[in-house]
Write a protein that binds this DNA or RNA. Sequence first.
DNA 1: GCTTATGGTTCATTATTTGAACCGCAGCTT
DNA 2: AAGCTGCGGTTCAAATAATGAACCATAAGC
Lengths: 261, 261
Amino acid sequence: MSTIGKALSLLDTLSRLGKDVGLTDIARLCSLDKATARRFLVELEKHGFVEQDPDSRRYRIGSAPVRLARIREARYPFLRVAVPFIRTLAESSAETVHLSEFSGGRLSTIHVEDPQRAHRIIVDVGSILPFHATASGLAFLAFCPSTEIDAALRKPLEKFTDHTVVDPQLVRGLLDETAARGFSISHQGLEAGVISAAAPVRAPDGRPIGCVAVAAPLSRTTKTAIYEFGAQAIAAADGISEKYYGSERLTGTSPKTRRRD
Amino acid sequence: MSTIGKALSLLDTLSRLGKDVGLTDIARLCSLDKATARRFLVELEKHGFVEQDPDSRRYRIGSAPVRLARIREARYPFLRVAVPFIRTLAESSAETVHLSEFSGGRLSTIHVEDPQRAHRIIVDVGSILPFHATASGLAFLAFCPSTEIDAALRKPLEKFTDHTVVDPQLVRGLLDETAARGFSISHQGLEAGVISAAAPVRAPDGRPIGCVAVAAPLSRTTKTAIYEFGAQAIAAADGISEKYYGSERLTGTSPKTRRRD
DNA sequence: GCTTATGGTTCATTATTTGAACCGCAGCTT
DNA sequence: AAGCTGCGGTTCAAATAATGAACCATAAGC
């Protein structure tokens, strides 16, 4: 792997830790030599991507990503566009609705709206959604080119609950259903007692960029209800896509047709 | 320079461009070979830091920084803490107030509040503030260790207006005044017709992390008024610092005394 | 005062980065 | 249509930068 890749992985690892971390720890977590890790950290710090606490000498994510994110969001305000849709859906469904975005080969949660109820599903912003075990993951994969499906299913599939589908062939079955239906259903795939439905937000060329998902306690959710959530997720996802890519991108001649080529 | 540094500089360059940019252009702008630039871009794209438009094949900032920024801001919500102070100050002063943050060796604008008036100063979010020619830069440097002042003044100082102070010795004089007064004044240092006052937001160890600045049209601003703005900027900056570093950091034994060691 | 952590540094060895020249393609000119 | 030009992208020997075992200094624990 390239040096840049290693350094960015370090940054990624650092971002997943809930607290500041010392040199030795981060070197171990990234399987890097202490000297190497240090050189990376110094270099990243020079550019503001990490910062070192002057007292504890531990490292944390710096403020440079905040600047980049502002620029990115100013020009491509995905969240600004998407959040109103998510909020509306959370109100109408009265269940937790979350939005994910594909970035760096993974699907991660970027926004969550909780309904005003005591009993609801908790989803954390920043959490990573496994492709085979979540409604969002399935919805995303189902609309990807088959090469990417193959790549995702080649890796070992973790079994999170008794209900997690880990057989690649069975997952392909779920993907086919999802593609036909337009939304995915995850029946306790990641956590027991939780059912969810998700639909992909797609770029004009058909490629998914993220997902809208509704997550509800299994105990109070009928089959009719989850199909309704799925339909609403599709509406929200399409609404986001239309508003996000809006007028500018429609000038291109990119076909709307591609689904699984 | 290390490979990581070059790649992060490329990212930085990309972020300063107002639009998507092609391979050849970015290689030229970063003084890199085309092949090198491409390898960097591919590597950065793998991790979501840049993305390539599938149609135009041009590159832009990706969504990974957005994820990192969310994590950073969730744990250190500098903007969330600071914005109310900036807003209050903008209202009470009836002038443009902006907040800057030190990151990657530079001071960049991260928030701006405009007053409700027709005639006011415009400051862009994301703009870089030169140390010697802006109130924010002077306020920042004045409270830095002298080694960093030396480093900043060793570089050639650009003359932005007829009033820009570019003699290192004279700049040092301004810094001394600033340190004594607690806030800086920039008299048309960056733009003609603009006067501003700024105060540093400081970490518990005394090190500045950014600045609060009030910018007003010179024509309507008396000496009394600019001193009042300075005092208010100090109050806002201290308020932000106290709220930002609040309870957690006060456990340490870091001295409040350091100013220019 | 010894042991064992930590963060940080050194420098000969090693693996990666580098870039001139290259390809194929699309748009433009003649 | 032939030829030119600029684009994104690729190749491989040469040059350079990354690497990591061993090291130091310091602090905490026993």
